[in-house]
């Protein structure tokens, strides 16, 4: 079936007994599938988007981690990458796109501007998108290098594999 021993060993909570029998739980298998096929929705508004494009292109090649299927439709994606400045005119658009993504969904806030407004402490710039949409992983940098974005995707993968909920639904589970 194409599953190698490495695949099985790298999946948390999956055990291989002798022969071709593996035992696990359904959650573990689903999470394992999710983490290895994150489909990003790019929301690039500034120079961070250039680094994001470089991450997706052949030199850094995000497809090595299963996330090369960039969807420009929020309905088909589960990882929102906010890369760049978000103005007060753009925030409702971003919020709408986030709302359109099906659950479960994760959000990466890429770079200083998306995370805290960066150097643009002005009347028109959102000082951190996490005021309005839940963010799972923040990337520092101005702009961050492609390696940083890859690291963030891997952190999202770790989060999924560990069974943790996306930031967006945490509040639902508390009660």
């Amino acid at each position: 079936m194409g599953l190698t021993n490495t695949d099985i060993q790298s999946a948390q909570g999956v055990e291989q007994t002798d022969g071709n029998i593996i035992t696990t739980t359904i959650d573990k298998v689903i999470n394992w599938g999710r983490k290895n096929s994150l489909w990003p929705m790019p929301f690039g508004t500034a120079c961070c988007a250039i680094e994001m494009m470089a991450t997706l292109a052949s030199k850094f090649d995000l497809s090595r981690f299963g996330s090369e299927a960039i969807r420009f439709s929020p309905r088909q994606s589960d990882l929102l990458i906010v890369s760049g400045r978000i103005s007060i005119k753009m925030m409702p658009v971003l919020k709408r796109i986030y709302d359109q993504m099906p659950d479960p969904k994760w959000v990466i806030s890429m770079g200083a501007c998306a995370s805290c407004g960066g150097v643009f402490d002005t009347y028109t710039l959102i000082q951190g998108v996490d005021q309005f949409i839940p963010v799972d992983v923040y990337i520092p940098g101005c702009p961050p290098r492609p390696e940083d974005l890859i690291d963030a995707v891997l952190q999202v993968q770790e989060k999924i594999a560990s069974g943790a909920s996306p930031k967006g639904v945490e509040h639902l589970l508390e009660t």
Partner: peptide, 27 residues
């Protein structure tokens, strides 16, 4: 600026950090 924006931001009496537009949103 958005259509419902209040004020003219390049006037010198407009505060640099705005009048709270960047925090208050009614989606």
């Amino acid at each position: 600026m958005p259509d419902d924006f209040d004020g003219h931001p390049l006037r010198k009496d407009y505060p640099l950090r705005g009048r709270g537009e960047r925090e208050s949103f009614n989606f």
